[in-house]
Amino acid sequence: MSDALIEGKKLTKRFEDFVAVDGIDFRVEPGEAFGFLGPNGAGKTSTMRMISCVSPVTDGELRVLGMNPATQGSEIRARLGAVPQEDTLDLELTVRENLLIYGRYFGLARPVIRERADELMSFVQLTDRSGDRVDELSGGMKRRLTIARALINRPELVLLDEPTTGLDPQARHLVWERLYQLKRQGVTLVLTTHYMDEAEQLCDRLVIMDGGLIVAEGSPRQLIDQHSTREVVELRFDADDDRAKALALISRTDVPHENLADRILIYTADGETEVEQLGRSGVHPETVLVRRSSLEDVFLRLTGRTLEE
């Protein structure tokens, strides 16, 4: 009917009594970078595993590259690149051997793989580690190798489950930069993340998931515009009394706000003005921070909870 790369309709995943994915609808178009944003346990990985054809669909419909994962799993996987949440590198092999044997799993000819392996090692900046055992690599290097490995079959579609979880900031930026390169080459990226900055950096379009459901959909900009205000004021208090008093004052106005464990957030179009007004009405926090709205705020507005708990 259409040329969507992935299409899910009422897609559901149940494990015995537990519903991990609760009838979600989504489409991924060719060439876009599509994200599933949500906290741990939202159903992102279960969705991703169904798309990767390594976990059967319980209910609903799923088409990947126009095929049915239940009957054509092997054909679909042949055209996918998958970066799982936990590295599944072959620790007994070297960096280069990991790429070589993975290419063989796709039935590629050895000379073809050798050429691509060299290309990919340079793409992820691991050329000088090519003879090292994977055991000896840092976390960031392993992640980059996993990404390189997922590209050995020149996939049209790359699936990344939490691609930078557990990496230090520098390693994360290097991964983002490589993924951005891929995106520019026209590869369709689908990723899950619980980092709102990752979603903002990489995704053209995303869905926000919570409790197995999709709670919002759009580009990062659209989502912020629709579900949050332009700016956010963060108020922190040292004493609980001050905080309670402030909260009471704020509640009396109709200013949208969230009361978190460590701070109070105020949603507003103009942060500076809002701070002045609060001051005048007797709210005196220890520290005040005015910032632009983020996807984190969108999630908070929609669910009343933060992404990272």
Binding site: S52, V54, G73, S74, E75, R77, A78, L80, A82, P84, E86, D87, T88, L89, D90, L91, E92, Y102, Y105, F106, G107, R149, A150, N153
Partner: peptide, 14 residues
């Protein structure tokens, strides 16, 4: 532990 098979199953191998 080594997740060797998880890696294989992400490819056309079943």
């Amino acid at each position: 532990y080594a997740k060797t098979f998880d890696a294989m199953l992400a490819t056309p191998l079943g």
